[in-house]
Simulated scan of single mutants.
Amino acid sequence: MTSVTPFVSQENAPGKLQDAVVELYTLDSALNANIPESLRLPMVKLLRVVNSFYSNKIEGNPTHPAEILHAQEEGGANDPSDDLLEIKQHIEVQARLANLEIGRGVICTSKFFREVHKEFYQGLPKKFLEIKNPDTDEIIPITPGEFRTRNVKVGKHVPPEHQEISRYMGWFEKVFNPAHIHGTNRLFAAAAAHHRFMWIHPFLDGNGRVGRLFTDNYMHCSGLGGYGLWSMCRGFGRDTDAYYEALSRADMERQGSTDGRGILSDKGLLQFTEYFLDTALDQVKYFSALLEPKKLDERINYYFEMRNRGALLSSTGETLKPLKPESKEVYFKLLRSGPQQRADLQRSLETSERTLRTIVSQMSDAGLVEAPAKKPVALALSPSSIEMLFPHLW
């Protein structure tokens, strides 16, 4: 038997946390319902980049957002640095997981965690596949997708011994399976599952990134239809000290007979749950405000105005080329009405086929639309527009 409290249940949660969960579901539902459908996929793709930046930042990756945007503008023209390659790999793993449509019965299994770990580490340079024992300077190889076979210490935290990992992960799968958790308890479970996985620390390295990838998928399984349009990783990464402090409080051993019955502090778990829900609410409110139609329209207008004045620079410091004046009208048309056939855009603009071809070509080169041959023209978010259209994103 594993003597660890799984999660703070709805019945035992303070009223303010019960209210927070209801508010979170309400705000998430509103965001999911109100976002223009044309913007949904570009935003999901953008959030993968944001998630990767913040999740790797938490682990000490020094890559700056401008480097990521520059790499996107280049389109892979140059070989990325090792740190940028780590972020690129993380983005690709997110995309593959999204395409798999992970089921509720799979999300908490050891197989799932191993596959995510393997996906992330395969293909990374050798320096990412080994760690150094700080006490002995021993170089320890990391096997992608394999649980650790030695005991470790992470700061002040001493995770369960390696012989216990299979038992703990079996317990984890049983108690956190979202198919067996109902109603608002799923969000209380999401918070606890994030900590409990980190506490078990089943891999030699990579537990943080794997744990946050898991939480992204668990939030989807918790009935948050708008998740992916907002991000827990961004909340964790914007104040790394607060994140680690919250995890540390939940690592505490039980503080006397009034602190639950398991080996870990129920008070610490409650504090982490409060931190997790506060972070979630902060993020869904931020992205809801960011996508508020009137304010978004104002930022789009300003972007095109500044671009056509020659007042905007690329990530390399070069002045961005002006666009045809009709480009803004095309952008708003795609935003409001979704992907458009070229003939429909031509009629809407009352222009010639040749002029439309020039407009679409310019916008495609600028990353503002996706315009594959013989397919509708669709909205995109260019690296150069992101910081103006979505301020304070990083």
Rank of each mutant, 00 (worst) to 15 (best):
R104F: 05
V93D: 06
L85W: 03
T143M: 09
M43V: 08
K132L: 01
C108K: 06
V44Y: 07
L97Q: 09
R148E: 12
K118A: 14
P141G: 02
L47C: 04
P134C: 02
P42V: 07
I139S: 10
A71P: 02
A98V: 06
L129I: 04
P80L: 01
R40N: 11
H90Y: 11
L85Y: 03
P80G: 08
P80E: 04
Y54M: 04
P42T: 06
Q89S: 15
Q72H: 05
L84C: 08
T143G: 00
Q94S: 06
G123P: 08
S110V: 09
H70S: 12
I102T: 13
H117E: 13
E115T: 12
V106Y: 12
E119S: 14
K45S: 01
R40V: 10
R148I: 12
G76C: 10
Y54Q: 01
S81T: 15
Q94K: 00
R114Q: 14
L46G: 00
N51M: 00
D83Y: 10
F120L: 15
K88R: 13
N56R: 05
I58C: 04
D135Y: 03
I131V: 15
R40G: 03
I139C: 01
R104C: 11
K111F: 10
R104L: 12
L47H: 03
C108T: 15
A66T: 13
T109E: 12
P134T: 00
F147M: 11
F120W: 13
N51H: 12
L100A: 14
V93R: 02
P134E: 03
K45R: 13
N61E: 10
A77H: 07
N78D: 09
A77M: 10
E74W: 00
A98R: 05
P62N: 08
P144M: 05
L124C: 05
I139L: 13
G145Q: 10
D79C: 00
R40H: 09
P134Y: 00
L39N: 07
K111T: 13
N61P: 08
N56I: 06
S55W: 03
K57W: 06
E59P: 03
R48E: 07
A66P: 02
G123E: 12
H64D: 15
R104T: 14
V106E: 15
P144I: 03
F120E: 09
Y121N: 07
E92M: 10
V106F: 13
Y121D: 08
P42Q: 03
D79K: 10
F112Y: 13
E92N: 11
D135G: 11
P144Y: 02
P80D: 04
Q72E: 09
T136P: 06
V106I: 13
P141D: 02
E92I: 00
I131L: 01
K88T: 10
D137Q: 06
R114D: 05
G75C: 11
N51I: 00
D135C: 00
I142F: 06
V116D: 05
I139M: 11
S55F: 01
E119Q: 15
N61V: 14
E115M: 14
L129A: 02
V116Y: 09
G60I: 07
G103M: 08
L100D: 14
D135F: 07
E86Q: 05
I102Q: 10
K132S: 03
E115I: 05
A77Y: 11
P42N: 10
N51R: 03
I87Y: 04
T109I: 11
Q122V: 12
K132M: 02
I91K: 04
H70N: 06
